[in-house]
Each structure stands twice: as C-alpha cells, then as structure tokens.
C-alpha cells in the first residue's frame, strides 16, 4: 500500500491487524505441515506439539475478532478498509477451523504412531503439500491484495479434490484386502478428509481476498451453472 491514512494511529491499527492475521496464518501452516509429518514419520512428540500450539491459534482468533470490533466501533471504516475488516472477521474463522483440522490429524498421528506402519504414505504427503500450498498462496494473495493469485487457489482446489478421491479409493482397497488394517486405514482416511476440508477453507480465504480487493462476491459461483 503506497497511500497511507492521515491518522497514523488508525494506520497502525490496520497494520497490526494484518500482521496478526499473518501470524495466525503462519501458525496454521506450520500446524498442518507438522501434523502430517507426524503421521508420515510416526512422530508422536511432534503431534503433541501441534496439539499444544493450537491454543495460540485460538487466542489469536479472539484477539483479532476484538481488534476488528474495536475498529468497526471506533473508526467507522469505509470502502477498502471496511472490506478489509469484514474480510478479516471471516478469514479468522476459517483459519481457526483449519487449526482444529490440524489438531484432528495430529491426534490420529499419536494413535498411528503406536501401531505398525500400514504402507508408504506418499499421496497423503502430497495432499498435505497441496493443502499447505493453498493456504500459503491464499495468505500471500491477502497480504499483497492480489486477486489473480487468489484465483489460482480456487483453481488448484480441483487437483486437491481429485487427489483426495485417489487416496480415499486406495485406502478403501487396503481395507477390503486386509480387515486388520481397517482401524489404521480409517485414521488415514479421516486425515485425508481433513486435508481436503483444509483446502476448502483455503478456498474460502481466497474468495474473501477477491472480495476484499475487487468488491465482488465470487462465492458459490459453481452453483450458478
């Protein structure tokens, strides 16, 4: 942003809010990466760390909500500032849910670490990488106010969904072949589902970024076909 607000304290409040959202986004990115690595590397300690750190994400959600309310009440933001605040209020909910999904995966990781390894988990790792990249790109689009980047997130979500379906079918086959694998395969299936949902939340963030920059709502566009 080149132009700054005449009221420097207002400018500082908006800046601080943006920084906090990025901090929260960074924590969630680390959480999803850590939770999946914990599954792949059978590292329960890493999973426990993800679960503990979610408290920080939750606290940031409350802080950011409060900051948005204060700015709405005291500054009466307009135009792009108003869109930034309403976008922040929505993004923060998605980020918090994404943090919870990482915690769910981490809980599965703790469980899985205590049982024999099922089979190589390449696709789960790839699914995690796609979800993580979707959030990273959505956050990048948010900071740089770049709707084109945000649109890329929307497009990439189809790959994520396709990969999820592949992982799902593979795990289903594993279960049919060996009933003793059902418990572990179910855990992995839930984790894959969480990653797919994680990607959907990243899509929500990207859609809100497009609204923030352009002022047009692109949600539910597919339903209009």
């Amino acid at each position: 942003m080149i132009k700054t607000h005449i009221d420097k304290s207002y400018e500082a409040e908006l800046h601080a809010l943006r920084e906090r959202l990025l901090e929260m986004g960074g924590l969630v990115e680390a959480a999803i990466a850590g939770s999946v690595r914990a599954i792949v590397e059978r590292d329960a300690a890493m999973a426990e760390q993800v679960i503990r750190k979610d408290k920080l994400v939750n606290r940031l959600e409350v802080d950011i909500d409060g900051a948005c309310r204060r700015i709405l009440a005291l500054r009466q933001p307009a135009a792009s500032d108003l869109r930034f605040i309403t976008t922040s209020l929505k993004i923060v909910t998605d980020l918090e849910r994404m943090g919870d999904l990482a915690v769910n995966i981490a809980r599965r990781a703790v469980d899985l670490a205590q049982t024999p390894a099922l089979r190589p988990l390449h696709d789960l790792g790839r699914l995690a990488a796609l979800s993580e990249a979707a959030l990273a790109k959505a956050l990048d689009a948010f900071v740089t106010a770049d709707p084109v980047k945000a649109e890329e997130v929307l497009e990439a979500d189809d790959h994520l969904d396709a990969l999820y379906l592949k992982v799902f079918n593979e795990l289903l086959t594993t279960m049919m072949e060996d009933p003793r694998a059902i418990r572990r395969a179910t855990s992995l299936m839930f984790s894959a589902k969480h990653l797919e949902r994680f990607g959907d939340h990243a899509t929500n963030v990207a859609e809100m970024v497009i609204f923030m920059v352009r002022g047009t709502d692109v949600r539910h566009a597919k339903n209009k076909d």
């Binding site: 132009k3 607000h5 207002y10 307009a78 135009a79 108003l82 869109r83 002022g215």
Partner: peptide, 14 residues
Amino acid sequence: TNPREPRTEDYVTG
C-alpha cells in the same frame, strides 16, 4: 463500500 474512483476511495478512507 466500493467506490470506483481512487480519489473517492482515498477520501472516504481518510
């Protein structure tokens, strides 16, 4: 909420 002109945007956002 969504002015078209940058000058309007600058004025209403201060």
